[in-house]
């Protein structure tokens, strides 16, 4: 059983979380960077698309070197914790808030949390719904370690997220995978460059309106190189990337042959009456990282 009232453990966890946050905000993981390099190489020399990708690449390197935010919109702070039975969730939440306040003072995070009624900026990134922490308990005795994944999702890309209810007359999409495909391509076309393309689609088929958005974000935690365990969805993921790039929206919407870096699709059961297709668009600055903590709450390994 982990006791977060123990001063040593508390200090170690604070340090581990701060390092996780620093790296999440200032460094892209290899899977993301590799695709960005590929995209840069594939755009035409002298084009606006190549120019955009060049600045993007320079920015990634500079942010890493300076330990500074890749993007000034440090976004919604999403944290996913997988833990053994009996993990002190409330204590963890309080410590996480301390770390976020500290990270905001250090400039790893922008003052980014606003009261929706008074419009007042909290100034320290703490408030209702922020940070957004999701706990998941392991089956008893199955695992004893703690995994923490963090994702920073900015407002520009969050604003182009979209949810379809099928059938949809406007885009002639029925309740089948072909209908899903139409919805996803429509989402990419509607987003244009506004979500800071080339982006990544996190998708959920099914669920209720809320759980569908939640799962679509969770899909963004997947390694971009992985394969969907469902063969049909795996094919669809690759097809969506290929077809989206044929729209010629390009980086930043300047035109070009790369609009989407990756597409990840999950599914939840639905009600007979509902068929949602939900898209969470992630910008090229896909800031997500994760750690495995040892029993002393030190960072044991990185998940990406």
């Amino acid at each position: 059983m982990i006791n977060l009232n123990n001063a040593n453990l508390k200090e170690t966890l604070l340090a581990s979380l701060l390092e996780l946050l620093r790296r999440t905000s200032s460094e892209l993981t290899k899977d993301v960077y590799d695709i960005i390099e590929k995209v840069y190489a594939s755009e035409e020399d002298g084009s606006k698309a190549k120019y955009a990708m060049e600045i993007i690449k320079d920015n990634i390197e500079l942010a890493k070197k300076k330990s500074a935010p890749i993007c000034q919109d440090t976004g919604t702070i999403l944290i996913y914790v997988s833990h053994p039975v009996g993990f002190p969730q409330n204590d963890f939440r309080k410590l996480t808030e301390q770390v976020i306040i500290k990270a905001t003072e250090l400039g790893y995070l922008r003052q980014n949390s606003v009261n929706s009624i008074t419009q007042k900026n909290a100034g320290n990134n703490i408030g209702p719904g922020h940070p957004s922490i999701h706990f998941e308990e392991y089956e008893e005795h199955e695992k004893s370690h703690i995994e923490i994944r963090m994702m920073l999702k900015g407002g520009g890309c969050e604003n182009v997220g979209i949810q379809y209810s099928l059938p949809n007359v406007q885009i002639k999409a029925n309740r089948d995978l072909y209908g899903v495909k139409k919805a996803l391509l429509d989402a990419v076309a509607q987003a244009q460059g506004k979500g800071c393309s080339p982006g990544i689609l996190g998708v959920c088929i099914g669920g209720d309106r809320g759980s569908s958005y939640e799962e679509s974000k969770r899909q963004l935690l997947r390694n971009l190189d992985d394969h969907n365990t469902n063969a049909e969805l795996d094919t669809l993921e690759k097809e969506i990337v290929k077809l989206s790039n044929k729209l010629e929206i390009g980086p930043m919407g300047f035109g070009g042959s790369n609009t989407i870096l990756s597409c990840k699709i999950g599914h939840l059961n639905r009600l007979p009456a509902s068929f949602f297709v939900t898209v969470s668009y992630m910008c090229w600055a896909h800031r997500r990282q994760g750690v495995v903590l040892d029993s002393g709450l030190n960072i044991k390994s990185w998940l990406y």
């Binding site: 920015n59 942010a63 300047f254």
Partner: peptide, 13 residues
């Protein structure tokens, strides 16, 4: 003018 979205460090420099 369109700046490069997300390029917070290059632009800050």
């Amino acid at each position: 003018f369109h700046a490069i979205g997300g390029a917070a460090q290059v632009l800050a420099e």
